[in-house]
């Protein structure tokens, strides 16, 4: 058993020695790099981007410092798209318009709609009603003046 193993190691050593001698005699031509470089230039010239799509594709497929796998890239894109959607669409729909309604125990009520745009808020609708049985009154402010103020006072 031991002899057989030794025989095998000997054969392995002989094969390695044989190949080592082959390796010494198998040297590539010295002009490999110049040839390779000109082929590389040719390839780069062929794939030179002519439009934005080509440039983007080259950037995606080309070598980079940190390799990003395709699946990780897709997940990242989905996360960014999701965040953008949440911070633009939803906030605009939910947060930009506010309706306020108030009714007093004396039968006086008013309602108003407020719209937020950027850092400013505007009153877009205002209704005041006196339902005490005597008068019904609707106040329509001057909407062209965005800085208007409304004073409401009650008297019995």
């Amino acid at each position: 058993m031991k002899d057989e193993k030794n025989n095998f190691t000997n054969i392995e050593r002989k094969v390695q020695k044989f190949f080592q001698k082959q390796a010494d005699s198998l040297k590539v031509n010295k002009d490999l790099w110049p040839k390779l470089e000109s082929r590389l230039d040719e390839k780069l010239k062929d794939t030179e981007p002519h439009n934005t799509k080509g440039r983007l594709w080259q950037w995606l497929a080309g070598p980079r410092l940190i390799a990003i796998s395709a699946s990780v890239g897709v997940v990242l894109i989905m996360i960014v798209a999701g965040l953008l959607w949440l911070t633009t669409n939803n906030s605009a729909n939910i947060m930009n318009n506010v309706s306020i309604q108030w009714t007093s125990k004396y039968g006086v009520s008013f309602s108003c709609d407020v719209e937020a745009s950027g850092l400013n808020s505007y009153v877009t609708n205002f209704e005041f009603q006196n339902n005490s049985g005597k008068d019904t009154e609707t106040i329509a402010p001057d909407w062209s003046d965005k800085t208007n103020t409304i004073d409401i006072s009650f008297s019995q």
Binding site: Q22, A23, K27, V28, L32, W33
Partner: peptide
């Protein structure tokens, strides 16, 4: 890298 590995690749 080409110069380092060209011979072993060629062989």
């Amino acid at each position: 890298l080409v110069e380092k590995y060209q011979n072993v690749l060629y062989g």
